[in-house]
Design a protein around this nucleic acid. Sequence first.
DNA 1: CGCACCACAATTTTT
DNA 2: TTGTGGTGCG
Length: 813
Amino acid sequence: MRAGYVKIGVMDKNFEKRYIEARNHVIEKDFARLNDMQRKAVMATEGPLLILAGAGSGKTTVLINRIANLMRFGRASDTDELPDGASEEDISVMASGGERARALAAFEPVEPWRILAITFTNKAADELKNRLSAMLGEAASDIWASTFHSCCVRILRRDAVKIGFPENFTIYDTSDSQSLVKSILRDLNIDDKTFAPRAVLSEISRAKDAQTDSAAYLARAKAMNDLWHTKVGEIYCEYMRRMFAAGAMDFDDLIAFTVKLLQQDADVREYWQRRFRYIMIDEYQDTNNLQYLLSSLLAGGWGNICVVGDDDQSIYKFRGATIENILSFEDEYKNCRTIRLEQNYRSTGHILDAANAVISNNVDRKGKTLWTNKDAGELLTVCCADNQDEEAQYVAGQILASYGKGAAWKDHAVLYRMNAQSNSMERAFKRNGVPYRIVGGTRFFDRAEVKDMLAYLCLIASPSDNLRLVRVINNPPRGIGDKTVETAAEIARESSKPLFEVLSHADGYPELQRSATRLRMFAAMIDELRAFAADNTPDALFDQLLEKTGYVMALESKNTVEDTARAENIKELRSSIVGYMQESGDNTLEGFLADVALYTDLDNYDTSADGVTLMTMHAAKGLEFPVVFVVGAEEGIFPGMKAIGEPDEMEEERRLCYVALTRAKQKLYITCARQRMLFGHTTSNKMSRFVDEIPEEYVDMKSASRGFGERTGGFTGQTGGFYGQTGGRNTYNSAARREPERRQRAIQPPTPAAKPSLPDFSLGDAVEHTAFGHGIITGMRPMGNDSLVEIEFEGVGAKKLMLRAAAQHMTKA
DNA sequence: CGCACCACAATTTTT
DNA sequence: TTGTGGTGCG
């Protein structure tokens, strides 16, 4: 009981209660569209809050509405306090509703810049920002909605000096770190087989996550007499030394140094703790130790920390996420409230039941059961194909049929465990004329040419960046060989001058005599560009850079398809520079470079283009599609080989399965292949245990096999299917079970060779296609033992299809 | 110094 | 099977 309202309380014991009720009523009205649990989460503003949000339960909606609540009503929805001068009249005004009621209900509305919302990906942060400004307008732009990393960069930009870094520190991405480790290995004469850069880096990363600095790491390894770890410790030390010398931080450092800064500097800590009154963290199940420390440090002032997550969707253990953070949140924050969001708005009943059934096999979880108001919907379809090509053909066939019934291509997604599995899918889609888009693979900022140009820009911005210097010094070729660079680097190290300095005065070193002119010219060019950068905007600098370095010229002179694509990418990079300047209003090169290292998401897929989405199950997290195909459901693929026999790993795979299944809104297919060729070897695997974990009553079993249901384009005529008939869908293993039919099927090579004759279509034929409708064959060219046909479809236009595949979905009209 | 050829390995991925 | 990285030759 606070002094402020005691006098009123004495006068009327009920007043306080009635006031709060009226106030809550007003606030609730603003969030009437939420369900009870969601609203509860929105209105619980004070203190630690754990929101366990199941897949598709409207998590982001809750986050956004919670922020809206804070900004409109402050902590009114979650406090017993009454404003000074609260009166009986206020209650009646609030009861009457309207704008005045809302104004009265507000209790210290929160300024937007006091709210921090942290996500993992730029995409999620952008989505949050967009939805916030849609709901709250202009004021939303002052909310800190950012990723862990960009949040840290903003904090570090202010005080990096306090931990010994220049405020314009550069950020190394993973491949920068890799090259740095590689060059360290070379310089220290360490074998890169026993000390694979990747493994070393992940060890360093783990050390950083545990807040073990390089000296401590090395000391401990030495004390334990562990050779491998000692060597890694040495590499770690050198790595940090060079990072520091270059004024660079890697992704882990951004967080580790921010944590360090906050831990050791009370002024800085208090500044931020005072500033952020409300902190929200999305995808909390994906946080690692450092991120946990960061969040609790930032929340240390007001203690208003709200974490949102789903322990069942924790699928990033391999990159350091510790599920313990969410599992132990309630122990960590004793006065914590926990709210479960279990109503799912995404999927139909059977899909949810299946997902629930699968995930219930995990032991280590908070426990949650999704439910829905929707109908049971269609049964899941599980389909076994003979091999991966047939599997892909089946998927393509189902999609064609679905498209034929009016669905858009982009309503469909194909999810696989490994990127390598996309190949067969891609081929099948090409054969059948299904437009598709692959998400993932090599990202824009990982392309060599883009990295090259960025390296130039980094070098211009900071002369001490040896790593980037080495990358571009002979790119395009300038007659400066590795040997020369090596020698120059040696000199630089011994005289402890920046490498760039040595190049500028190359004539002064006899060892560099031979290429001195070339080195000097390179240095002069960079100097010139640097001078240009001083009084020009980054986009102008970029143009200048392209011209001076001759990079694009070198590409154009080659004139192959790849090089044209590279030139395109460089243009794309230019537009991202312009984009940065427009969006941030900042036109410094340093600003752009800092941003770009964190913004790898440039090829964020445009949802406008209509096409089937192909991606890994990991990449699908957070997305949804009306129709989802989970392919490669085989032991050894999914769950992967590495997980079998490892209970923890298996649980993670199962969570991945849960994520995959819950992506589907209306229809879910699970497919597998009896035999699969992967990495050049053919294997035959059992059906995934995850399929077994789905109760049979939710599943329609099918077997995709040549000779069945060809014309219907998807074996839809075969209800029950092979395993349905035998009732033994839980075990198909050609070694263990010996029905002749099965063996025959497994052995029979389902190659086109088995069908030597081409389907009977010829030039000029009118055809009726499941998906594309009526058309005329306007072209036909033999290709291998197949034929490439060109068909002019009415309303759809010309399509190039492979005859064998197309014939499965086509009749002569 | 550039190019061609061979060996080798290959979950999952964001920042 | 595919992509990458290292080596050896012209």
